[in-house]
Design a binder for these strands. Sequence first.
DNA 1: CTGAAAGCGCTTACAG
DNA 2: CTGAAAGCGCTTACAG
Lengths: 339, 339
Amino acid sequence: MGKRATILDVAKKAGVSKSTVSLVLQNSSLVKQQTRDQVTAAMETLGYVYNRSAAGLRGAASGLIGLIINDLRNPFFTEFAASAQMCFARQGYSTVIANTDEKPDIQAQVIDSMIEHGVSAFVISPTYGGEDRPFDRIERAGIPTMQVLRQVDERTDLFPFASHDYTAGGRLAGEHLIAQGCRKIAFVGGIEDRPITLERMSGYHEAMTAGGLAPQAFYGRPSRAFGRDIALHLAKEHRDIEAAICFSDLVALGMLSGFAEAGIRAGRDFRIVGFDDIEESSIAYPRLSSVRCDSALFGQNAAEAMLAWITAGKRPPDQKRYDVDLVTRQSSLWEERDV
Amino acid sequence: MGKRATILDVAKKAGVSKSTVSLVLQNSSLVKQQTRDQVTAAMETLGYVYNRSAAGLRGAASGLIGLIINDLRNPFFTEFAASAQMCFARQGYSTVIANTDEKPDIQAQVIDSMIEHGVSAFVISPTYGGEDRPFDRIERAGIPTMQVLRQVDERTDLFPFASHDYTAGGRLAGEHLIAQGCRKIAFVGGIEDRPITLERMSGYHEAMTAGGLAPQAFYGRPSRAFGRDIALHLAKEHRDIEAAICFSDLVALGMLSGFAEAGIRAGRDFRIVGFDDIEESSIAYPRLSSVRCDSALFGQNAAEAMLAWITAGKRPPDQKRYDVDLVTRQSSLWEERDV
DNA sequence: CTGAAAGCGCTTACAG
DNA sequence: CTGAAAGCGCTTACAG
């Protein structure tokens, strides 16, 4: 295989100095086109590949973005991560991704490791819990960092936060179900007292209060399995409840499955609205109504915000909430023509 | 924020030479415990972080693994990627992940970029198609590389291939449905003529031939949407077909949804077996029978094989097929007690 | 067990 | 527009 070619080899081949080669690499306008072409040709024939370690040592940006996700298996986060990664890739940035699986110690380890690798920026959907403040290491390293989807560090002036306007989403869902004539509407899923749960519920509370109705919550893991279980539970013990706003589509899809099992017709006997609008929701049966938080778009927005920060120095605002909207489908407004 | 501490600072603080600090970093046994402790303490108080760029320049392994996935949004691959990444992380390796979205040009770009970053190894679930052989750049760079789940380069002596024993899985599924008394059994989903489709079908063909039955295939994208559409199609045009083996669980889950919509009771009126056994299958309604290809375990196995290669020089075998088994659930063997 | 020295492949002022 | 020189923070023989 031989040794990898260096800029010195390229310089010799092209008949210029190595500084010139370096300048070509930076796309500097100091080099005239003809020289540039010679150098490029030499790189081509030598099979030269840029050595980023060497560049990094001398102070150049690594072109590596650290993307840390609390639960990469959840399609909501997968979609976000994949979209952000592809947006970074289009701009020539590579993305180091790590799944922390909601474990603070893994998150701490992964952050340290990425700092060692010299990531130019962090985008983190963090894990809750853990002893010390997880971002302190990052702060010391002075690496631009955005927290997304979950805010765990209050210093948003240091670590700007971006998420969806969940409160508005919960309100839209609540108002919609009330407009459908539902009175007993439950909120299903989400870990009690977590910020996201509180946000998603707060809009629901507002809508219920405005309608003079009493809210009611069934907390639990935001998983299909929980949704299924709660549907079976409601079918047995709470036949009075007419509708549910779910913490996430995963929960809602699980409820769809559970109601099917219990012989209850979702959309008719029981109305359901999910949260997130993942791809599956639009083809489930019945089609699932959901508060759309466009993950793909959000991933792209977050990536672009970060790129603007590290390339143009434009720090994102401390807090940014992206709009959501309600997509109504069969599960909350069955009509005969849908059959 | 000040400048980041270097080994020189640590050495001064600990009252040793910088070589000693470096040795401590390598966990060398040449340094006695007391010295090691002093150095470690100095690193602690200085907030020293290891600079991998510098180390990489001097020839040390980067500790970076390149993981390239053709479709990161598909839970089958997400599960694999997340599991492999976490396995690498446990051994102190960071993982650069890229989703190629089945696009050969993105794959080529991503490979180049990762080579620049000096990844120590590649694990690739490649994209089909594209002009030139995508692995040639890797070969020149001499980076250990495994192709997983899809074989696109015939040189498995250079790029060992690991996957599941799909043929056996198809056979198990076929034999099972025949044993259930089905005669007209279709194969649904998968792009025609792709190696994986051929593998998954071949076992089905074997089983059908052995049973004196005629195979029949409906090709298509391995998505929920396709499964839903084909179920609606079968319900209208092919009421004679009694059962289906699906290319993937995604297709099978889509069929479940489509049959529910068409008023056909999956598991009773029509039997279905999926492929992959993703998490959702065990809680879908009806519970989906599936050929289990344990993605999480496979991801771990692949990661461990790669780690053995780069740390102990043990190259994986040219071809490795991991066993699969059939998990039978309601969708293929409904019985009254299941109700 | 520890220290002094060279060098990995780049980038960055500084001259010319 | 291009060249010579220094140096980024490590690792690696080589002495001691």
